[in-house]
Amino acid sequence: MAKPSALNTLADLAQNDTDAAARELGRLQGLRNQAEQQLGALTQYRQEYRERMQAIAQDGMTSTRWQDFAQFLASLDTAIRQQTEALARAEAQLLAGRANWQQQKRRQNSFDTLITRNETREQQATLRREQRDTDEYAARAARLQVAGRHR
């Protein structure tokens, strides 16, 4: 069995690892949120641009201008696809970060449980020693009292 001080050191290291995993999880959550916001902004901009294109087209437009609009919409579609992929990567990294944090937390909890068990065993051993010492003292006192009466 590891000494309490060694066990406490391991628990402290596990706590540090858990804290680092939590910070990383927060960072990954921020990146995922940012990717989602960028995708939302691109999608909204595409919708607004398409509506504007349709409004202008109702009044009539040249084929060159129509091609420019269509080309720009195509580039927005490409950006949206790329951002969707970036969001998927960010979500995958977030899931991996969450799994890592959970693993570190379980490890930390295991050390905490071991420390608690060790402390409980030590307390029980101390109580047994104190009880044994008390019993020995009481027995010695009783023997002395009986010996004193027989004299």
Rank of each mutant, 00 (worst) to 15 (best):
S110C: 12
R27H: 09
R81P: 01
A2F: 10
L144Y: 10
Q67P: 02
T43Q: 11
A147D: 09
E122P: 03
R50L: 10
A142C: 00
W66E: 04
D77K: 08
Q124P: 00
R46I: 05
N100E: 15
Q102F: 10
R46D: 00
N109D: 15
G40C: 09
H150P: 06
M61G: 02
T18A: 15
R65D: 09
G148Y: 02
W66T: 00
G40A: 03
D112I: 09
L31N: 04
R23H: 04
R151T: 04
D59E: 12
F111Q: 10
R98Q: 08
D12T: 04
T18P: 02
R128V: 06
Q44F: 04
Q145F: 13
G30E: 03
N8E: 15
D133E: 13
Q102E: 14
A35R: 14
A57W: 11
A142F: 07
L94Q: 03
R32D: 05
D17N: 07
L73P: 01
R81W: 08
R107D: 08
K3R: 13
K3Q: 09
H150W: 10
K3G: 06
A57P: 06
T62S: 15
L73I: 02
A79P: 01
T64P: 04
A14I: 09
T9H: 14
L25P: 05
Q82I: 03
Q145R: 14
N118V: 04
Q103M: 11
K3M: 10
E136I: 12
G60H: 03
R121A: 07
L95I: 05
S63Q: 14
D135K: 01
L95Q: 07
Q108Y: 14
A138P: 00
T126W: 07
T84G: 08
R129D: 12
Q34H: 08
A86T: 03
L31I: 08
A6G: 04
S63K: 15
K3P: 03
N33F: 09
R65M: 12
T126C: 11
L39M: 08
E48H: 01
T43D: 07
Q37V: 03
T116G: 06
D133A: 09
R129T: 05
Q108K: 14
Q93K: 01
I80W: 04
Q54P: 10
Q104Y: 00
E24S: 08
Q124R: 14
R128H: 08
R32Q: 14
T43C: 07
L144Q: 07
E119M: 08
Q131G: 01
Q83H: 03
I115Y: 15
N16Q: 13
E136G: 00
A90P: 07
A20M: 06
Q47Y: 09
L76P: 00
R151A: 02
